[in-house]
Amino acid sequence: MKSSYLFKIIGILVVFGMLAVSIQAFAQDEEEGGGTIIFTKPVKAVIFEHKVHLAQGLDCDSCHDDPFEMAAGTAEQNPDFTMKSLYEGKYCGACHDGETAFASNTRCTACHIGVKGYNRLTGPKAEGNGHEGE
């Protein structure tokens, strides 16, 4: 009798938790139009800020579904998601060609935030050695 009561409470808590997470995710999507994307493949890590690009006058159609699928993480699964492809005009290179936007082979650290940047954004990681900031 007592344990079923406990299960009910846990069940309710889980439902509320999921709801809160989904609301938060939804709110973020709405507010920032996709939010912050962090790519970790093939190198850790590259940042893409949706709001920075929206502020440039771009809209969703500018990049979705070509060159990027709507679902985050899709491009990263492709073996050709590399700097070489960017230089050939694929992915970010569609605009970052030196004419529409700064060329992909310049200003490396504008997008590459590194392992340090990644750790700052995602919090302390178990795999780090605690000396990352040195």
């Binding site: 190198v43 850790k44 490396c108 650290t109 590194g114 392992v115 940047g117 050695n129 605690g130 000396h131």
Partner: peptide
């Protein structure tokens, strides 16, 4: 200005030369 802090160098060094985490 080519460095993007991917830290593959650090990882490779650790593995090759058995460098401890500290």
């Amino acid at each position: 200005n080519h460095c993007i802090d991917c830290e593959r160098c650090k990882k490779a060094c650790k593995l090759t030369n058995h460098v401890p985490d500290y």
